[in-house]
Nucleic acid binder design. Sequence first.
DNA 1: TAAGATTTGTTCGTATGTATC
DNA 2: GGATACATACGAACAAATCTT
Lengths: 235, 235
Amino acid sequence: MAEAIKDWVVEHNLRKGDRLPNEADLMARFGMAKGTIREAMRILEAQGLIESRTGPGGGCFVGEVTADRAKALLANYFYFNEISISDIYQLRRLLEPEIAATLAGRLSGEQLGQLEAIVATYPEPARDAEEERDQHVASLLFHRRLANFSSNALLAFVVSFMARILTDLTVYRQLYDPPNRELFTRGLAYQTDLIAALREGRAADARAIMAAHMDTAERLMQAQEARVARRFMAE
Amino acid sequence: MAEAIKDWVVEHNLRKGDRLPNEADLMARFGMAKGTIREAMRILEAQGLIESRTGPGGGCFVGEVTADRAKALLANYFYFNEISISDIYQLRRLLEPEIAATLAGRLSGEQLGQLEAIVATYPEPARDAEEERDQHVASLLFHRRLANFSSNALLAFVVSFMARILTDLTVYRQLYDPPNRELFTRGLAYQTDLIAALREGRAADARAIMAAHMDTAERLMQAQEARVARRFMAE
DNA sequence: TAAGATTTGTTCGTATGTATC
DNA sequence: GGATACATACGAACAAATCTT
C-alpha cells in the first residue's frame, strides 16, 4: 500500500518538491478508500519521504529526508541496542582524526571563521556546572560543524550522529561538575591548534591533534561515569 | 498525535512485547477518532516501534526496531545524499580493521565456524559473471557476520550498513565480469588468513590483514567504475 | 476586509477479514 | 464449525487551513 505509492513515485521519477496527486486522485488510481490512502501517506511522511500542506496549491510533495530525521530514526534503533560511551569513542577515535586530516587545507575562510566563532563562545573557564555544560555542548557543535564540511556524506553523518547523542546526553544528565580548569584550557588549546593546522593544510598535525583530543575527551566522559540515556527521540 | 502515543508508551515504561490498548480504548483515552488513531499507529509502525496483529489476543505491541529496518530508513537518507564507493571505503578502511583487531581471540568456536562456513561456499574461482557476483555477495556476508559479532552495537551497525549497500549494489548492477582468477585467490587467502589470526588471538595481524583486504577490495570496485544506485529501500 | 475555492485533516457509522477459542 | 475479539477497510460528511479574488 505505502510501498505501492513509493514505487509509483520512483517509477515516475519524481524529485524533491514534485507534487503527488491529491487524495481523490490517489483513491481513484489505486482503488482504495481515503483512510487507506491517508495511512499510507502517513507512513511515507514518518519516513520523511513526503510532506503535506493544506489549502489550494497544497497537497503532498516529495520531500528530502533531512539529516535530523534520519538521526532521530536511527536513535530509536539504539533505544533497544544500548551503546556505551566507550562504544562511541571507539568510533570517534577512528573517524574524527580522519575528518580532520582530509579537511586540512580544504576549508574556505568562511568555514574556518565558523569554527572560530564557536570556539570564541567560550573564551573563559566556566564558573559553574551549568556554564560548563553549555561549553561542552558548544564544543560538540564544533565537531558537528566540522563533520558536515566533509564531502563524504556517510562519514559526516556518522560523526554528526555521535555528536548528537553525546549532546543529548549532556542535556539530560548533570555531567561536568565540578568545573575543571585544567581540562578547559587543554580542550581550548586543542581546538585552536586544530584550526591553525586546518588553515595551514598540515594534515598529519590535524590528525594527531584530533586524536589526542579524542583521548582526553573520552577520559573525561568515562570519569563522569556517564551512560547513554535510554529514550525515544522526538520527531 | 503519534508523539502523544509514543510518550504514553515511554511514560508507562512499556517494553518489547507489551501490548498497547486496543483502538477503542485509545480513542477514548486520547479523545480521537479511529482514523486518527490508526494514522498515528501507522507512523509508529513505519518507525518500527510497534507491530500489530489481527484476531483475538491481537492488537498493537511494542516491537523493537530491527537492524534491517533501521538500515532501510537510513538508506532513504542516502537516496538524497548520494555517496560514492570511495566514501564507503574511506570508512571501511578505518572500521573493519578495528573490528578484526578487537575480535581477535574473542570469538567462540561456533562463531569461527560460521565464518568458515561462509568461506567454504566459494572454494573454487567463479566460472561466469553470475557466479562471481554470488561469491562477492557471500564475501560481503562474511563482513556483515563478523561485524555483528562485535559487542559495539554502533560499530557493528555502521559496518553492516555499508556491507548492505554494497550488496544491493552488486545485485542491481552487472559488476564483476569478467571473472578474475587472481583476485579470487587473493581474496580467499585474505579471509582464511584472517580467520586463523582471529582464532589465535593475533590482533595486530588481524588488523593488518583486514587493512590489506580493504585496499584491494576498493581497487576492485573502483576499477569496475561502480556507482551507488539511487533508489529507495523496501520496507 | 471578506468571500469563495481547494485540499488536507478529522469524525462517525458500518462492513469485512482474520485469528483464537 | 461457530462465536468472539480484534484489526482492517470503506464511504460520506464535516472541519480546518490556506490561497486567490
